[in-house]
Design a protein around this nucleic acid. Structure first.
Lengths: 187, 187
DNA sequence: CTGAACTTTCAGAAATTTCTGAAGTAATAA
DNA sequence: TTATTACTTCAGAAATTTCTGAAAGTTCAG
């Protein structure tokens, strides 16, 4: 594996972006490398390619492991470990969504739920609770929906994506065809 | 406005979460306050409630302004400005999505597109380009899709959300009814 | 058991981000 | 015009995050 300008710009940009998706720059860069390398890489090689310390590589790989984004393999006769990205692009996106949901949405929902259970001590708190309930419902909706989308087959998901705002038309159509029936009950 | 334990826990948690959504802790806290306060708040009050400096409040409000998440108002006879969160919960979520798309997805897509245009200098780069194209297509799909969802009316969006994985059934059904026609073309 | 090859851990260093508060700007009333 | 009140900016301080590299841990062949 060699750091050509093309690969470099991808890796660096992915590093910046990675930090938006819940992990730091280095972790993003390591992941980018593993994704675009056909051959699995060993920790030393990763460190050299990115110009970072061996310890940092180890921590980065550990983090990626906790996201279930890397696969470890061995070459016969070699003691060291080789790393590679795991699954298809879709799988990766799914993992990142899933993991972020667990780390961010779930704790928030739980906190909001707790607050909703409390008795409001004054009108200000009562108003706050109303707003908090709205936020809770929105987040819960989004969470449940994305979860159910994740359970769809990749083909269906693709159809859905390609539909775009056409989804609106399909809904109308379904609505009309089913007459009285509420499409929400179809789930 | 008073900082009761309920309000405090909401504000602090929102602060932590906020940083995941593209702004820092203080900005998240300020926003949380503005969302759950029925009355608009002035900058001084915000600073006191959160125990942060006046300058920091100013910067935070500026940031929220750039996200179009706050509304400024005035009280008759008062010189100072009062701030309040803007729009419904749905609007807020939309703004955050929109803004993040502009700041994160668009530059990434543009970079990936550039890389795809380059001539691969060797087999390694050729492989990298294939992967990059996959990622590009995925991101583009997601971007376009979420954009078209945002253009749906809140009611339709709600129906869609409530459908959950029932979306799969609707698709099947549409598929069957339309016979040969590819639903992807319906958009 | 020993030593070589490799990985992990973690205390402190370095880099980055965020925050403060004083100085500057702006608007208004008297 | 001057005094007053409020908002903004930004250099440097403080806090936080990330990274390094040495030490400790692990595995395995001989």
């Amino acid at each position: 594996m060699q750091m050509t300008p093309m690969i470099e710009s991808f890796v660096y940009h992915f590093g910046e972006m990675g930090s938006r998706w819940g992990f730091n720059r280095t972790v993003g860069q390591i992941y980018a490398l593993l994704v675009i390398s056909e051959q699995p890489l060993c920790a030393n090689e990763i460190g050299e390619l990115l110009g970072i310390s061996r310890g940092n590589v180890s921590m980065g790989l550990k983090e990626l492991g906790s996201w279930q984004l890397v696969q470890v393999s061995h070459k016969p006769g070699e003691r060291r470990e080789f790393y590679h990205s795991r699954g298809s692009i879709w799988d990766m996106a799914n993992r990142v969504f899933e993991e972020r949901r667990k780390r961010e949405m779930d704790p928030t929902l739980s906190l909001l739920r707790d607050i909703m259970m409390d008795e409001a001590a004054n009108p200000e708190e009562a108003f706050a609770q109303k707003r908090i309930a709205e936020i809770h419902d929105l987040l819960e909706n989004i969470t449940e929906w994305t979860q159910s989308l994740q359970s769809l087959s990749p083909e269906k998901l693709n159809t859905l994506m390609k539909l775009g705002s056409g989804v609106g038309k399909v809904l109308e159509f379904t609505d009309k065809f089913l007459g009285k029936k509420d499409p929400a009950k179809q789930a």
